[in-house]
C-alpha cells in the first residue's frame, strides 16, 4: 500500500470518529491530521524512506492512537450533548416570551371588538363563556400562526386545524356568538399557512 493510500485510510478514520461532533471541533481535528500526514510523508521521503516503511509508520501511528481517539471523541460528544448555555436558554426564553406577547395582544385586540360592540350597541350580546370560548380559539389560531412563522409543523396537524376551521364555519351561523364562522375561517387560514410552511421546509 502506498503512503498516500494509507493516509487516505487514516483520514477516513478521522472523519468517522469526528462524525456528529460540533463542526469547529471536528474540522480542526480533520485538518490537523491532514497536515500531519502530509508532513509525515514529505519528511520520510526527504529522508529516502521506502513507501512501504512510510505506510507502515502511518498505520502504526493510527493504530496506537485508537484508544486516545475514542477517548477524545467521548469527551467531546459528552460536552456537545450538555444542556444549552445560559445565553442560549435566555435567547430561547426571549423568543418564546415575544411569541406569547404577540398572541396575547392579538387575542385581546380581537376580543375587544365584541366588547366595544356590547358597549355601543344592544345587538351584540356576548356572555362570559362566549369570551372564554373565543379566547381559547383565538389563542390556538395565534399559536398555529407563530409556529408557521418559526418552523415547519407537520402536515397532519395542519390538516387537522384546517378541518376544525371548516367544521366551525359549517356549523356556525352568521350571528353566532362568538362568531364561529369567522373563527372557522381564521382556523382554515392558520392551518393553510402551517401546511404551506411545512411543505416549503420538506422540499
Amino acid at each position: 500500500m502506498t503512503p498516500e493510500r494509507m493516509a487516505e485510510l487514516v483520514a477516513r478514520w478521522v472523519r468517522f470518529y469526528t462524525r456528529d461532533l460540533p463542526t469547529p471541533i471536528a474540522q480542526r481535528r480533520i485538518d490537523e491530521i491532514d497536515a500531519d500526514l502530509h508532513d509525515h510523508i514529505a519528511h520520510e521521503r526527504a529522508n529516502r524512506a521506502g513507501d512501504r516503511r512510510i505506510a507502515l509508520g502511518i498505520a502504526s501511528r493510527m493504530v496506537r492512537g485508537l484508544g486516545a481517539d475514542a477517548s477524545w471523541r467521548g469527551r467531546h460528544a459528552k460536552a456537545a450533548a450538555d444542556p444549552p448555555t445560559r445565553e442560549e436558554t435566555m435567547k430561547i426564553s426571549k423568543t418564546v416570551y415575544r411569541s406569547a406577547l404577540r398572541v396575547a395582544l392579538g387575542v385581546a385586540l380581537f376580543l375587544s371588538l365584541p366588547f366595544v360592540g356590547m358597549l355601543i350597541s344592544d345587538d351584540v350580546v356576548w356572555s362570559l363563556a362566549d369570551f372564554v370560548a373565543a379566547g381559547v380559539l383565538l389563542t390556538v389560531i395565534g399559536v398555529v400562526l407563530e409556529l408557521a412563522l418559526r418552523r415547519a409543523g407537520n402536515l397532519p396537524t395542519a390538516f387537522g386545524i384546517a378541518a376544525l376551521g371548516v367544521a366551525a364555519a359549517s356549523f356556525g351561523e352568521a350571528d353566532d356568538a362568538p362568531g364561529l364562522v369567522l373563527l372557522g375561517i381564521l382556523l382554515v387560514v392558520s392551518g393553510g399557512a402551517l401546511g404551506v410552511r411545512t411543505a416549503q421546509h420538506s422540499r
Binding site: R29, G57, R61, M62, G65, D69
Partner: peptide
C-alpha cells in the same frame, strides 16, 4: 516510532 496521532493531538488539546 513517532507518537501516535490520537495520543499526540489529545495531549496538545
Amino acid at each position: 516510532s513517532l507518537t501516535a496521532h490520537g495520543t499526540l493531538y489529545k495531549a496538545l488539546g
